[in-house]
Amino acid sequence: MSQSHAPYYFVPEPSRYPIFGSVALLLMGMGAACWMNGVNAGPYMVAGGFAILIYMLFGWFGQVVGESEGGKYNQRVDVSFRWSMGWFIFSEVMFFAAFFGALFYVRVLSVPDLAGLESRTLLWNGFTPAWPSAGPGFSEAFTPMGAWGIPAINTLLLLTSGATLTWAHWGLVNGNRGQLKLGLLLTILLGAVFLCLQVYEYVHAYHELNLKLTTGIYGSTFFMLTGFHGFHVTLGATMLIVILCRVMRGHFTADHHFAFEAVAWYWHFVDVVWLGLFVVVYWL
């Protein structure tokens, strides 16, 4: 082994942060369950748990950033981070797959089945199974969300943000810090505009289209899929802001910037999920 003093692989000191994270999730899980069942303490437990979680995230990530800038991470540790981010994104893909699978299942199987011969004659007289459907037991009229208004604009915004992020990466690799900062800023702004339009779309759906989370299976799949996606965009934008702050402080070099790349991978993943949503939730 050529290294004389540096360890072959960096193993961190004992850490207090994980137990803070565990307490935070205990409070949040228990608090949310209490809240949903009308127990008064619920919201306070969630708030307390969330505060601890934020403290833990700041502390833990701060420590990791410090170790990274302190040169403790060699090439081998860098490879570990790359593998782990890839597998984490794979787990996220599978989470979305569950909800996409539910959407395909109801569109292809359960809604047509409800208009099958037995169901129609015995249970749901006169139900026609055209998608979008809120099911045979849902009587209010609603308007489904069209694809070619805000959703199409949002598609353009996200695709553009992918391009600006790659442009920022080129800036980083070529040592052009101005291009890096501008590209990151543009990406964050595009993400923020996307989220604002998404909020506007939800308000529009609730007030003018009578399309709600409770609007049968169409409302369920529409809001859960786009909602979880929006949540991921929020997370991705938050991570981009952290990266921008680190860039402002002079972190990252042309050959040592995996945090930037990890967030970029995540952002592109969120982008691809949106394309799937646009095609099967809004368009088809």
Partner: peptide
């Protein structure tokens, strides 16, 4: 998971 709403 509610057939009345089109789920299953």
């Amino acid at each position: 998971f509610n057939a009345a709403g089109g789920g299953d």
